[in-house]
Design a protein around this nucleic acid. Structure first.
Lengths: 339, 339
DNA sequence: CTGTTAGCGCTTTCAG
DNA sequence: CTGAAAGCGCTAACAG
């Protein structure tokens, strides 16, 4: 209940000036070993710990990283967050999270966080900023790292979604499939998600390579990201007069919806329908879902590292890191049945 | 790139004193409407926004809530976090997250956060504090709300795990099952998780009510929480000479492991084996898993409300809120097959 | 109603 | 190597 001790109390107790205490607190080299010991003893005796707010104000560094993302809209984002939090746990930084569930929130956070006094750095996941946003960040001189989204002027850690869409589709083609559906969420996401558009591009590229015409009936869109919506959309796809024998879903969550739709329609996976997803969330392995693996956890950790670097060196040339993608073949895809 | 404007700049521009600016910033009533307007105009023109660090130091309030939890060890915790973040988004508070993946981290965070200058309040999820921890919190005079864990001296939001275990088991009994297994993680969790112990108690109570002796062979423990470990443990259970016809798993994740084990052993669920879980995570519905529903999201939001109240009124009598539990009967449980 | 002023607790020159 | 002193930007008395 007693007031927390301040640096002044420590100084008094150790018989030194506050400057000296501050120096030992910050590991400043120019403190004699003996005084350092005295101070450390006083600190221990008083159970002193510097007031973070005072420190921040005085030093101009907030020692916090702001992470803004639509975390809870997709399991994949949560996994990235885990990587972020894990990477930052060992540092002196705090991570404060801003969850974006509406476009309005995104606006608000982008605006509010474009200041040097709220955080030392921004980590933005899956929310591509506009040029105006970027101008604001630049103007505020705050380091930003984008994860799973992109802007030419900002550091970013991304995957090649065109390639991902390509290898997923190629996998199905290699299995002999010719009638391949693509299920994704709306290309006109209110958040500016673009991944499914790129994955669509990869899908079309693979089709073109195999000299198969793109059939727009085979591209279905689920309004919202979610199992339910995907299932609904997949049902339409699977009830087409000439139904696809394989479906590429732009996320594992949606792939689950496809499988569910297949089950409801009495189509066995993979015998009668091959399904491949994207992300490789934990659950994918459990469900034996073939998918495109992307390093979610690692990319979060990597993003933190990059951000730390950018904070330490503000003039770091804009870095563009691409994480590897890998086909994870499991049991939801199989060779096209002969008949 | 120019220095951010300070309250001083605003004052100068509006032709008033800094005190007045501070007053309009904090909606202090005693400011004439006309000066208020002038100040607001100056604020807008300069795109001024008060420096949070300075504010914190001066006011002694950090305007942040620290949330500490083993978030990523269980989907259920993430869902609670979502409730927390969602409830706090509309307030002026920031939420900084501390993920506990090792007992050491827990120690560290409990110790570091037992100070008034790091956060205005603590929200602890699923990590029962020791008396020593509580003494530290009390001594630091920082409001704490426990969610899904308990200590007599702290505000808490909990569920009745004994009751939950009871209704889950009762459900299986009502379906005619007499050989009922219980799968949980270790009662000796390094984090002090106690839920599975209470659920076990409920299980035993229900058995006793039905005049069935507790069979310790039917209580299996998975070392770690996770599908894999649960599957492993379940396999042993299901290969007993007299195997149970139903299994109650202490979490949905573990129930999934049980189902997986059943699949691998060629046991059909629910025809040959009924399985019920606990939590009702998103996935449970998709998997048609019978389970004990608990309000995860809501409890997170509720915890925030309570914490805010405790912050506003430090002498709030210790509150104990119990959230309702509800049986969610789906397709993983069925009447005992006659034969 | 409003201007002035004294801190909040720390970091960081600047002398010595 | 170290003490003294000047802020960091804001809030909150305290006069007026």
């Amino acid at each position: 209940m007693s007031q927390s001790p301040t640096i002044r109390d420590v100084a008094k107790r150790a018989g030194v000036g506050v400057g000296t205490v501050s120096r030992v607190l910050n590991n400043h080299p120019s403190v004699s070993i003996s005084t350092r010991e005295m101070v450390e003893e006083a600190i221990a005796e008083l159970d002193f710990s510097p007031n973070p707010s005072a420190r921040r104000l005085s030093s101009g560094k907030t020692m916090t990283i702001a992470v803004v993302a639509p975390f809870f809209t997709r399991p994949a984002f949560v996994e990235r967050l885990r990587g972020v939090v894990s990477a930052i746990a060992d540092s002196a930084y705090d991570v404060v999270v801003y969850d974006v569930e509406t476009p309005g929130r995104r606006e608000q956070y982008f605006r509010d966080l474009a200041r040097r006094d709220r955080a030392d750095g921004l980590l933005i996941i899956a929310l591509p900023p506009t040029d105006e946003d970027v101008a604001r960040f630049t103007n505020a001189n705050i380091p930003v790292v984008l994860l799973d989204c992109s802007h030419p002027d900002l550091h970013r850690i991304v995957i090649d979604d065109v390639y991902g869409g390509f290898i997923a589709t190629k996998h199905l083609l290699d299995l002999g499939h010719r009638l391949i559906g693509y299920l994704s969420d709306s290309p006109e996401s209110p958040f500016g998600f673009v991944a499914s558009r790129y994955r669509l591009q990869g899908y079309r590229d693979a089709l073109a390579d195999a000299e198969i015409d793109f059939n727009s009936d085979y591209h279905v869109v689920a309004i919202d990201h979610g199992i339910r919506e995907a299932r609904q959309a997949a049902k339409g796809l699977l009830q087409l007069p000439v139904r696809p024998t394989a479906v590429f879903a732009s996320s594992d969550t949606q792939a689950i919806g496809v499988i569910q739709a297949a089950n409801e329609l009495g189509l066995r996976v993979p015998d009668e329908l091959s399904v491949i997803g994207y992300d490789d969330i934990d659950l994918a392995e459990f469900l034996h879902l073939s998918t495109v693996h992307q390093p979610l956890f690692t990319s979060g950790a990597e993003a933190v590292d990059l951000l730390m670097e950018a904070i330490a060196n503000p003039s770091l040339p804009t870095r563009h890191i691409q994480m590897p993608l890998q086909l994870a073949v499991r049991q939801s895809t199989a060779p096209l049945a002969q008949n």
